[in-house]
């Protein structure tokens, strides 16, 4: 088992119960409450694997794709939701579709994700890596909502994306999507 903890700072979250140690890309070690840690399906899966193999208590799970600054943010989210969310049964696909398009982002999460878009993307990627579906979905929805309020030109400018269409291709797409030309950007809408 990894001993990434030996060369790093250790941050302890004082909570009762079983503690799980994880280390970030930079090698910083975090000690999490089991309930918080298991909100990541990846960590949950690893712990179950280790359980089968009698893994030691000193194990540190290396999360090599997650930077410390992003993990700190994710930890805030995990701790809040571990304390506030009810245990939910996995959603049926139709429920998931409705949630994706019709449910508002809760106020606390809106504030949490009120950060630079680059940071939201990084949280989204980390949430995907750690398999925290709810957080990943919230990040996606937040970014999608931002995109929906912008024009094509604004998006290109915002993200430094080059218009790489040939004039013919651009014309073809414009024809196909002409019906949405007079659609104003949908400010603040989930739809």
């Amino acid at each position: 088992m990894s001993t990434a903890a030996s060369s790093s700072t250790s941050e302890t979250i004082a909570e009762p119960g079983l503690k799980i140690k994880v280390s970030t890309k930079e090698g910083e070690v975090f000690e999490l409450d089991e309930k918080v840690a298991k909100m990541s399906q990846v960590i949950r899966g690893i712990l179950e694997d280790l359980g089968e193999q009698n893994g030691g208590d000193d194990s540190v799970l290396p999360l090599t794709q997650v930077e410390t600054r992003i993990f700190r943010k994710i930890l805030v989210w995990l701790k809040y939701h571990a304390g506030h969310d009810k245990e939910e049964a996995p959603k049926a696909e139709e429920d998931e579709i409705i949630a994706r398009f019709c449910e508002e982002i809760p106020e606390w999460d809106q504030k949490f994700l009120n950060v630079d878009q680059a940071v939201i993307l990084e949280i989204m990627l980390a949430a995907d890596y750690l398999d925290i579906k709810k957080l990943r979905g919230l990040c996606c929805k937040t970014v999608a909502n931002i995109l929906k309020t912008k024009t094509v030109e604004q998006i290109r400018e915002m993200y430094g994306i080059e218009n790489d269409f040939t004039p013919e291709e651009e014309e073809e797409i414009r024809k196909q999507t002409a019906w949405c030309e007079d659609e104003p950007p949908r400010q603040g809408s989930n739809h």
């Binding site: 970014v143 999608a144 909502n145 094509v152 080059e162």
Partner: peptide, 18 residues
Amino acid sequence: LVFKHVSLPSACVLRRVC
């Protein structure tokens, strides 16, 4: 993942980006 959260009319606008 992001585009899965975009409705069809918005997706059509975004098609023009690149």
